[in-house]
Amino acid sequence: MLELRLVQGSLLKKVLEAIKDLVTDANFDCSATGFSLQAMDSSHVALVALLLRSEGFEHYRCDRNISMGMNLNNMSKMLKCAGNDDIITIKGDDGSDTITFMFESPTQDKIADFEMKLMDIDSEHLGIPEAEYHAIVRMPSAEFSRICKDLSSIGDTVVISVTKEGVKFSTRGDIGAANIVLRQNTTVDKPEEATIIEMNEPVSLTFALRYMNSFTKATPLSSMVTISLSSELPVVVEYKIAEMGYVRFYLAPKIEE
């Protein structure tokens, strides 16, 4: 028996919009810790890890650890039927091949349930150890989204370099080249407008912009994004979900031939 009641149902809607273009089918895992997912894109270049902690739900009942295979496009279709202010409850019965999403309007005058078929997904689960990163950049998520979009009109890849000068996003394409440098800026009115650069060592890595742009679909989840870089590791682009957890995207770098 599974029953997860999320008062801020819009969070789940936003999570699905953030990941459904990157991953088609995925297993959602439910345990005492929370509702989570780990999945790679079809080419195994990017990985998404989601955690919605059990404490973030108004009611969280998960009698035993369970993994439920879902088609994210179908799940998104159903969640789009929930209002932005609706309370969403996810319900499942042991051994059932379906899951139910219940949507309640804030005034309780409309209650809908949508039953979705589950699927068997044979997916590989990866262990991602805690790592020391050479540089961690915290910046407004809308600014990161803007940079990725702007650069992708010039080139296909972005070089992200962190030095003591700041963080530089560079691209090059048939029509020319572009460089965008952000300096640390903590003298802003609101903390969510700050750019904070922690650097242990200078680092420079190249990534496919197509994936970066896909990650920025998570922008509505958080006003800030954290980009963690290390020369031997995939970049981690993290959007924190207030009070609940996170969506983290891991992207393997491109290297010189």
Binding site: V45, E124, L126, P234, K254
Partner: peptide, 14 residues
């Protein structure tokens, strides 16, 4: 323009 690495080259199956 370079070789695209894949995630499974970095992290192991559990």
């Amino acid at each position: 323009k370079g070789v695209q690495l894949i995630i499974t080259e970095f992290y192991r199956s559990t």
